[in-house]
């Protein structure tokens, strides 16, 4: 048994996302004119061994996001935990 954690990091809504804006312009030019917003983020997968409880996995994943995977100044994060 192991734990699989999927982490999504995105720029906060208040932070300008020039990459997302560029992707949106490209999509609009490609004919996808109904696309009215694009935000580009990061996706990270973490594997934990099965010796931890689900609660501990969540606690550690939260710390990992706070300390390293996301910068709280500019980014927010969310994650899901699955048993594998």
């Amino acid at each position: 048994m192991a734990w699989h954690v999927s982490v999504y990091v995105t720029l906060k809504p208040s932070v300008m996302d020039p990459q997302g804006a560029t992707v949106q312009r490209a999509l609009n030019q490609m004919g996808y004119t109904h696309v009215t917003g694009v935000r580009v983020g990061k996706f990270t997968e973490l594997e934990f061994d099965g010796s931890l409880s689900e609660m501990d996995v969540k606690k550690q994943a939260d710390e990992i996001c706070d300390k390293l995977l996301a910068n709280p100044n500019t980014e927010s994060y969310r994650f899901t935990v699955e048993k594998k």
Partner: peptide
């Protein structure tokens, strides 16, 4: 220094990419 919290704020991608 910003990442370390020794200075406030952050440096993100240039506006023009």
């Amino acid at each position: 220094l910003c990442e370390a919290g020794l200075l406030p704020g952050a440096l993100i991608r240039n506006k023009g990419l």
